[in-house]
Amino acid sequence: MLKDITIGQYFPGNSLLHTMDARFKIIVTAIFIVMIFAADSFSALLPPLIFFILAFALSGLPVKLIARSMKPIIPVLVFTSVLNVFFVDGKALVSIFGINITDEGLIISGMMVLRLIALICGSSLLTYTTSPIILTDAIEKMLKPLSKIGFPAHELAMMMTIALRFIPTLIEETDKIMSAQKARGAELDSGTLVQRAKALVPILIPLFVSSFRRAEELALAMECRCYHGGEGRTKLREPVSGGKDYAALGVTLLFLCAVLLINMGKVVI
């Protein structure tokens, strides 16, 4: 169950997307998200959709992955679409128990679902094709100018790296503790809600204890290697940008223009 989590997972490869400069990938993803939310009609959502399909085809990842990254957000999707369908005013199409289903409600909730799916897919594509370390390096580099006004760019990036690094470790640890408590007769998946909540105590306490222990050990290990924050620290891999990165950015901007033009009614699909 816990092994299904794919957030922050990286699938190594050599595609165009994998080898792109991570800073550009972040910017492109941001523009993609802007596109999704700028689009105010179904036809305006078409360019971002085409853009995503193109990007995904270039990444060379298996199609199965999209389905896997969608799985955890299905409840959210259902919830938001149901809310929107029932509670948006407009011309009533059907009326059930005094609650109207309106055409506008249907349109808004349809847009909402499409946007959310695109949002998750787009950002997963970023993490699938970029290793966490390269990603945080890129974030650090992009935030660097802000450190002049006291923004802790390096510290933030380091925290993100560590957090991402420990997700799989914690998942493994949780699995192990769950097995150990099950071996002592703990019942985790039956009983009333209160019983189930109580059954979590034997899992959570050891998990907290070991997280603190790990944090302490890691801090000590970092100090032993003379870690002292970002000052004067150099990088093993400096990100380099090339022609293809600018080309990708250009293409993305073209798609954004397309969305805006459709919005303004200049282009009709």
């Binding site: 192990k176 503790i177 097995s179 071996a183 034997p202 050891p206 204890v209």
Partner: peptide
């Protein structure tokens, strides 16, 4: 599980 008791590796990490 009551009949077959299993002590994991580093079992002290399950104490709570």
């Amino acid at each position: 599980r009551f009949k077959v008791g299993l002590v994991f590796q580093y079992p002290e990490y399950q104490i709570f």
